[in-house]
Amino acid sequence: MGKEIIRLFLITIFLSSHLFSHPVIFKGGKVFWVTQSLNYNDIRFGTSQTSNWLIGGRLLEDRNSNESFVLINNNYLLKRWNALNSQANIYLLSSVGINTKDNKEMGAFGIHGDWENRRYMAMQMMEYFSHNESWVSSTRLAISPYTVDYTKMSVWLIANYEVTYQDDEYSSTLIPVVRLFKGNYLVEFGKSKDNSFLSLMIHF
């Protein structure tokens, strides 16, 4: 029973879109993203139909249970504030799909808000997962130790804190993350006591 709860918790964490730092990209743009952790392989592809809406597919493999999920993602930019040296956004997120092992359907719905300037970033997201009736709150606070121009590599140090509410119980995890990006390539690496992950993303 304990293992099952941990498994469901991990599935919830990794189904969560918290790593998806750019839920919608430029009109006509495409995004390809791969994440590998000790427990999961996660491959995503998406295309922004407009500057407000990205649709994409996702294949998620649980390496412990050999279960796979196939999902369709819809990310919608509800509101954006562009200012001199900063930007803030509100997104609506949804994923629907099936577990390929038993064809059981699942869905996830969420809201994501963020603000960033050249040095600091704050992000908050809430998501609901239908397959285990859980809620996940993800919070990210980040700092860039230095600012660079367009052609150089950016570095962000991120504190990623997640709280899951399921079956009247709360659990939480804190993962320090390093994000590097240059041009249209992004790499993220996170490591905590119990977990680690590596993400690669490209816009084109």
């Binding site: 750019h22 930007q87 960033e116 041009g183 249209n184 992004l186």
Partner: peptide
């Protein structure tokens, strides 16, 4: 340009504008 806070986000800007017919692609990126 307002809101241009990261190079990853600005990549789409370079891509979209350089596709315009009148752009001299030999200069800059």
């Amino acid at each position: 340009v307002l809101g241009m806070v990261c190079s990853l986000c600005a990549y789409g800007l370079e891509k979209g504008l350089s596709d315009l017919d009148e752009i001299n692609k030999k200069k800059y990126d």
